[in-house]
Design a binder for these strands. Structure first.
Lengths: 360, 360
DNA sequence: CTTGATTATTTGTATGTACAAGTAGTAAAA
DNA sequence: TTTTACTACTTGTACATACAAATAATCAAG
């Protein structure tokens, strides 16, 4: 993902940095427009554009005929807005609470307060929440876990409006491909790739999969799985893949028939995440299929669910607190320097567990 | 000498007038830059300059590729200080996420935003958070889960300061007895009482207990347990009780020796909550003690942990979302009516499960 | 009817030029 | 010394051009 920061925004970032590092102090006269124009090799109009942005933010003051000056009320202005809004889909269990905890810890230590809201993975709720944030105009940054990132989002306009207000936004776990907004997540493709490679290395070659349809993570994990299968010269058969949506994920037992039929000839199943894997183990147990003797199960995220049941599940750890912390840190940098590239993807590794059996 | 107004300012005035006279209504698409350029015989740059001024005032909104639209800024005036702060000990799992969800849902629907912070059950963190809330002076209410409510709290002064500012406060799950602040919680005494009565009814008479030392809930549940035992004419022996603190609760296996010894002669154990019960089952399993054949286990809260393991645990349901929602509703009433008595305790009932065996 | 590519329109970024208007210091004039 | 006029420099206004990027409507292919 390539993001080109406009020249005038780079200038904004540079000037902000000069003030931040005390190279320019309040009351002091700034470089003149022509000086900046020569320093950066841009046109005077571009310099004026940048200075205009800073003036609107109340950071500097222009006086015709005299020059441009640094304002001294910058700090007083900022403390009023030392607040970050966090918008996630859920909060009840799984990886969410600890991710939020990671965010909260970093922001609290930086003197920010954290405002929070949950979409329940519903576009309508997301709309309400974003409109509230926009109309209040009280936050200096936004951390968002996308709602249904796999399908078109009707709220993109609201995100653009937020960007127009120069409020930095960062996505976690997933992102909307249509928006050029940075994201912090795990490398979902790598998760699918490495786990599938692991299953292959354990001697499996008929590997089924359950993936989540309506978010981008499911699709990325699927493509990692598929690439690994193709890399091994194996065909991915549609009959070995089950796609579920959020609703079905919660109640996997409703598709018991489909599960038993599609995975009948498989020696292993790759699951979208631990919730799905946990539900799958339940179905297998109720139908007398033993794990890992009859079939192996692998998963992603390595949440508490992975080690809670009778059979611990091989999974790839999700850096929960660290991911939240990284997102918060990068957001803070974006607030200071609008040109900062905040994209980050965590690498993942496989944790072998008893749910996967070695086949000779 | 007459002062000539710049062309772009004339344009600003004209557009403002159009909105004032309802010739342009909110949400409607404005004339495009090129249209205005032709209408007024000025350059596109001048038009952009004018539109830029209006955009900074929040009167209009520009959307690249689409057009320029009139903003609906009615909302901006209304909601200013509609914010509630929620302070809980943890967020990672158990009953916390769903309680927070219940709070958030009610407050969001009432038009409030929710600010959140976690103490990690440390007095120091609680102090930082409360001082921040006081100095910002931006919230209209406070929902707090007490930190270590069982031992004297060094931050009572801060709560009194908040009260002096006439900001309503409500406690959830537990409360500080020294403060006359309303609380919404389950009836912990009843939880201890009813569950013990249930164990007695199942034929048990040698009932041990594990309780949490450093919060008020543990003490209330203990007194319910004790009252039920005495009501049945049974003696509560110190040797059948284990007191744990927060640290030991997380790593119950560290006191394995004590557990095995104290409960050797018991037919049942009443646990402070599901976390403790879950850890206890683990210890029993690792030491070859079968539940419920050798010993019965009962618990409080009925979280996901109660039904996750091999042996489902008898427990008393915690009304998580409902409790959070009730707390939020009562806080809203307190904001409107400072005299409202917001105290509320949920009644609890026993959910029998396989972890408790009937003795003839 | 749906999907995908194309096209026209719209705003965004960037550069260049020219002159106007205000400021501050300097030099000349009273 | 004080005043005035000048001058160099600053920001403000205005116009022109070019291309980039996003959007929405249109049209053709399946």
């Amino acid at each position: 993902m390539e993001k080109t920061t406009p020249k005038y925004m780079e200038l904004v970032g540079w000037i902000n940095e000069q003030i931040e590092t005390k190279k320019l102090v309040p009351g002091q006269k700034m470089y003149s427009e022509n000086t900046l124009k020569d320093m950066f090799g841009v046109s005077r109009q571009t310099v004026r554009h940048a200075i205009g942005v800073l003036e609107n933010e109340g950071i500097i003051r222009r006086v015709q005929g005299s020059g441009t000056y640094i304002n001294d009320n910058r700090l007083a202005n900022l403390t009023k807005r030392m607040r970050v809004s966090v918008v996630t889909t859920y909060v009840d269990g799984y990886i969410f609470p600890r991710t939020i905890q990671g965010i909260e810890k970093v922001l609290l230590e930086a003197g920010y307060s954290v405002q929070i809201a949950f979409t329940n993975n519903q576009h309508g709720r997301e709309k309400t929440i974003l409109e509230d944030i926009i109309s209040r105009d009280e936050v200096s940054g936004l951390i968002v876990e996308p709602t249904k990132s796999g399908i078109p989002n009707p709220n993109l306009r609201l995100y653009q409006e937020i960007r127009k207000k120069r409020i930095p936004v960062i996505f976690i776990n997933s992102f909307y491909p249509q928006l050029k907004v940075p994201h912090v997540s795990i490398n979902d493709h790598m998760a699918g790739w490495k786990m599938t490679k692991y299953l292959l290395a354990m001697g499996h070659d008929r590997i089924g999969g359950i993936f989540k349809l309506d978010d981008g993570q499911g699709q990325a994990r699927f493509s990692g799985y598929m690439d690994a299968m193709m890399d091994a010269g194996l065909e991915v058969k549609d009959g070995q893949i089950i796609w579920v949506d959020t609703e079905e994920k919660q109640h996997l037992d409703k598709v018991t028939g489909k599960v038993l039929e599609r995975f009948r000839d498989c020696t292993a199943v790759f699951c979208y995440n631990d919730e799905v894997a946990f539900g799958l183990l339940d179905i297998f147990r109720k139908n007398g299929i033993r794990v890992p003797q009859d079939i192996s199960v692998a998963s992603v995220d390595d949440s508490e669910l992975a080690i809670l049941g009778e059979v611990p599940i091989a999974s790839t750890p999700h850096p929960m607190e660290r991911l939240g912390g990284k997102a918060a840190e990068n957001l803070l940098r974006m607030i200071k320097d609008p040109g900062f590239d905040a994209n980050y993807e965590f690498e993942v590794d496989v944790v072998p567990r008893r749910s996967v059996r070695k086949i000779k």
